[in-house]
């Protein structure tokens, strides 16, 4: 019995909590991708770098707060700086839209042209972020590191395995719930949200019924800026910030959005967790859990790791391919334009 509990704690500690936090981060990122896809109708390759930009602003403001002695006590100061990050990113994406995307929208250019244009935006943002903050890892988490530390947990329960619950992980999960609830309330209950959904479902009909397309597009970019910044800051708090990592997040984020069904917000959330849990479970060394759960003679001698962690991209990719093969529109029926 104790063995079973120990195994369960190890599983929670190394798989369930990290995967849930990572899944929430991916889900918020994928929501941004899926919203742009649904309303502006292109895959935004600059999304990872938009996340990096928002996080960068937040980090800079955090540093400034820290230097003048403002902090949030046990919570990371970055939470206080987050609104500034969102505002900065909102300005950035609105400017990009005015300067770059609007022209092609008016022209009714093919979606793939917009994708290529977003590649150009990606280059610029990537360069901009590296230019301002550099390419190195930045750790900007402060406040209390753990909600429950491994040692406290061991003393509390008397189990051999410790359970560590990081503040950043708790924060991620709570924020994700709030953000998703807000987003769905907005999309389903408010007038603007409904017009956005109408625009996504049928552009011509929406235009006919007097919905102002510019307003819909603007609101979409604002929401996307907020989502991207929140996702980026949460990821940065949980792991660390480096421009290149954020660029690479593009793959799991797109995989999440596609697995869930591009254009479907519910799908993006489901996709995020599917990708995160598969990534973590497949690259986790199961030995630690199985020594508790298996009878003595069957205890594994190897690490029982299906794939090394360096192949985590391969996992998102494999799931993506499987879904594309068997259910091309994703788990929740997305668009297939």
């Amino acid at each position: 019995m104790i063995d079973f509990l120990n195994g369960l704690v190890a599983l929670t500690n190394f798989v369930i909590i990290p995967a849930t936090a990572y899944g929430a981060q991916l889900a918020i990122g994928a929501l941004g991708v899926t919203l742009i896809y649904g309303i502006l109708r292109f895959s935004n390759f600059a999304h990872g770098d938009t996340m990096a930009f928002g996080t960068m602003i937040t980090i800079l403001v955090t540093w400034w707060f820290q230097s003048i002695g403002i902090n949030l006590g046990v919570l990371p100061t970055a939470l206080l700086a987050l609104p500034f990050g969102i505002a900065g990113t909102a300005v950035l994406v609105l400017l990009t839209d005015k300067a770059v995307y609007q022209f092609y929208r008016r022209q009714k250019a093919k979606p793939v042209i917009l994708v290529i244009v977003s590649m150009g935006v990606m280059f610029i943002l990537n360069g901009l972020v590296r230019f301002i903050i550099g390419v190195d890892d930045q750790n900007f988490a402060d406040g209390e590191r753990f909600i429950i530390g491994a040692r406290d947990f061991r003393e509390m329960t008397g189990l051999r395995e410790g359970l560590a619950f990081k503040t950043s992980q708790g924060l991620t999960i709570v924020t994700a719930v709030i953000v998703v609830a807000l987003l769905f309330w907005f999309l389903n209950k408010t007038r603007t949200g409904k017009s956005m959904r109408a625009f996504s479902d049928n552009e011509d009909l929406a235009l006919l019924s007097g919905i102002n397309p510019d307003r819909v597009v603007m609101v979409t970019w604002l929401i996307v800026a907020a989502l991207a910044t929140v996702a980026g800051v949460l990821y940065g708090l949980d792991k660390s910030f480096a421009p290149f990592t954020y660029f690479q997040l593009l793959l799991p984020i797109f995989a999440s959005a596609i697995v869930g069904g591009l254009g479907s917000p519910i799908g993006a959330i489901a996709g995020g967790f599917v990708i995160a849990f598969s990534e973590v479970t497949i690259t986790y060394a199961w030995k630690k859990v199985l020594v508790y759960w298996m009878p003595e003679p069957l205890e594994p001698s190897s690490l029982m790791q299906l794939l090394s962690t360096d192949y985590k991209f391969a996992v998102s990719f494999a799931i993506l391919v499987i879904v594309l093969l068997f259910k091309p529109t994703g788990l929740f029926k997305g668009k297939s334009v």
């Binding site: 979606p111 994708v115 793959l251 591009l262 993506l320 391919v321 594309l324």
Partner: peptide
């Protein structure tokens, strides 16, 4: 078309 993009990226 976007799927090919993501697949090749992967």
């Amino acid at each position: 078309s976007d799927y090919l993009a993501i697949a090749t990226l992967g």
